[in-house]
Amino acid sequence: MSIYQPPADWFKAPKGGERVWIGLALTWCMVMSVAMPYWHFYGKQNSTGESYRVTPAEYAQRVGKFIQTNKVGEMNGMPVVEPAPGGDAYLQAQMWLWMPILKLRKGQTYRLHISSLDLQHGFSLLPMNMNFQVLPGYDHVLTLTPTSSGEFSIVCNEFCGIGHHMMTGRIIVED
């Protein structure tokens, strides 16, 4: 009875079905524990959390310079920027836009820097459904390789005030 005192000799090893199930469950937990380190070394999708301290003002300056150097056009008044393949790309999150629009090449690897100038934001790439946290004061670096081409959307998925739902951006990937 769970609500009365247990028998005095309750400290006994499990038997029968209980023992079998504990063994099965523990084995499964071990499999799952191994899966993550395995994927870290052999899988292609990992969140390593590479990041550096940066003040919002410094970050805005870097983004400005990046846009100035690599701008190739405009869309709805937003600069479209094409970084060198294998190079650094910068994305700036602020209430309520993602700047600039990035033009990438399929199969090329970029060091994509993301940071926020104000609140916390959430980088969500659609329809890929890849999601990363964006914090002010932290330059979050994703070493990213697009494996498909087309026009992709960025939406914000961390609440950032009343205009949160209007915070969208674009990544264009060419073959």
């Binding site: 199930w21 504990i22 937990c29 993550m36 390593t48 999601n131 979050h140």
Partner: peptide, 30 residues
Amino acid sequence: VDPGVSAGWKIWNTSYAMYLAVLASMIHGF
């Protein structure tokens, strides 16, 4: 998927310890 914490920190802190708590829930579930 946060900045500021490493892959090692993330994996270590989600796997062994979390899975022993998962084991506990699986035990109660039986």
